[in-house]
Nucleic acid binder design. Sequence first.
DNA 1: TTGAAAGCGCTACCAC
DNA 2: GTGGTAGCGCTTTCAA
Lengths: 358, 358
Amino acid sequence: MCEEVGLYTIRDIARLAGVSVATVSGVLNNKPTIKPKLVARVKKAMDALDYHPDHVARSLRVRRTLTVGIVIPDVTNPFFTDVIRGVEQEAQSAGYSVILCDSNEDAELERRNLAILFSRRVDGVLLAPTSSPSAHESRMHQRFPIVVIDRVPIGFSGPAVMTDNFAAAHEGTRHLIKLGHRRIAIITGQLALSSGLDRLEGFRKALQEERLALPDEYLQHGDFQSESGYRCGLDLLRLPSPPTAVFSCNNKMTLGLMRALREVHVICPDAVSVLGFDDFEWSAYFNPRLTTIAQPTYEMGKQAMQLLLRRLQRSDGDQAGTETVLRLKAELRIRDSTAPPFCGGEEIKQFVDVSTQS
Amino acid sequence: MCEEVGLYTIRDIARLAGVSVATVSGVLNNKPTIKPKLVARVKKAMDALDYHPDHVARSLRVRRTLTVGIVIPDVTNPFFTDVIRGVEQEAQSAGYSVILCDSNEDAELERRNLAILFSRRVDGVLLAPTSSPSAHESRMHQRFPIVVIDRVPIGFSGPAVMTDNFAAAHEGTRHLIKLGHRRIAIITGQLALSSGLDRLEGFRKALQEERLALPDEYLQHGDFQSESGYRCGLDLLRLPSPPTAVFSCNNKMTLGLMRALREVHVICPDAVSVLGFDDFEWSAYFNPRLTTIAQPTYEMGKQAMQLLLRRLQRSDGDQAGTETVLRLKAELRIRDSTAPPFCGGEEIKQFVDVSTQS
DNA sequence: TTGAAAGCGCTACCAC
DNA sequence: GTGGTAGCGCTTTCAA
């Protein structure tokens, strides 16, 4: 029946209020030059018809959509949903809407999503890129402001906000070392991504500072997916001389690693300590409770959106502006999955300060 | 410098290809009446300029945006992100984009989000409503097709897709009963939501079938938030005669419940069994591994989007159509958090068939 | 088969 | 201060 309920236009309002469309438009845009009396009349008419201005028409006219796109590899990963939440919050309060695109860790899909977003004339984009080196060379990057989050492809330059992965990994590794571990392994992410490389480098640095070796077989190349954590974990545990501690570079891989541990009946932290990158609501309920490096996810989303908004503000012109890169500080959350090594075949010596957190 | 890169219009293409704009438009819309030769020429011109048609202008003209909105109470809840993933997938392959709105469990925000989506002239909306009874009376529900997911407010009628909560709760509770539990408590969600009420009813039914009592103090009213699970859990555990099993009606509340258990040093499942509604990737890594009722989340998202798309297809006219309600089947995943009751002060008798799953 | 022109709902300019 | 009107980029008659 009332299918076309409420599809009124500015002209309907104008007619009902007995003014011109220009006046109605003025009211919509809070033009201060319109007499209060008219404003009231127009508003009354709007209320009467429950009028909601057509954002599409407006966008076409003013050449701004008040819309941003966010392209992420996996909506299902709690890391990204926390980020999204921050973005959403910030967007809403600035009057923006956000179009969500899941690129499914697929560079081609990412490219296509960016094209779609361009067609839809979003004002800007937040992008957590896939690892494909070619993706960021797309022409889309010239089309609208992009703020990269979490991870930048090696060689990319432009505005970005992420965790200070180097420092975080360094701190986490130091925690392991202070516990007394000497044989420490790492399961890395893609090294073509800053988040992958920086974490490895922070890890390396901490080892070097203590003159600890990193045998090739302790350096396992993962890809941030659960499966790789599992596979690498298995490889490590089956080594003739397995590590006494493992640093897993993201939440998914930690999951895989824990599965591997369970499968070969290696008890954590008794036989091997586990330090995971990424914290999540459930970390404290694991068996054992997971020691993690918590990224400031929500904050990351907020900051990224704010950064993007600032770019959009700036006269909509020179996007070339400053190439801001924000590095947010992570937080080490020590729980039960890390402990001093258990008679690991080697010297368990020196005072072990478990409570250290610095 | 090249700020305005690629903002070409259909006229630019027409000029370059030496045809009229109508022809270009025809090519864009795959009109079969255009000579292949011209099509080729136009396409070449498009490629040359890397032309991407303005979706905004198109939307204004054809009065369809190929956009849907999804309004959910919490992007951060893995239940919803799995749903979103299903929606996204289905939307992408149908050429739709999705605008994400987090209503933060706030009825007023939900209402506002719906209004914004209407202004943006989305073709339809997927809505996981808050519990406020008034929300679904909004005029917005007359404006565009809405498919409700997960939970419908009591009294709502319209297309919806959700889990068969009654059956799922019934099956889960039977599992507890078969393990030998007699003193079984429940922590419910909002009973003004179908998901809250139906789970309670399924639970009740299973109890009644076995002539088991449900004392008032075993019926704890939660609100699907972690905090309420914690509070209700504490109340239950401090009862003079505490239950030997607790059924928690969603993932967040289960989390709170586990926290309560830990806090009062009650061992699960030795002292009390826990059955949680909602499964997630991490359930199997909890201490203990959680027995859960897994909803078909991804499927729910897919089905909901498909249902919506079908509505949109149907001549864009009679939305009044059938009031389809899909009830998807859940799956009981038995793990370690449920076990036979431990000399709970009462008779532990009869044969206990732990492996049952029917 | 192709092209010219009207118009989607809004804003912004200019004339009153 | 207010109103008439051109035009944002596209689709879609209708005429040629």
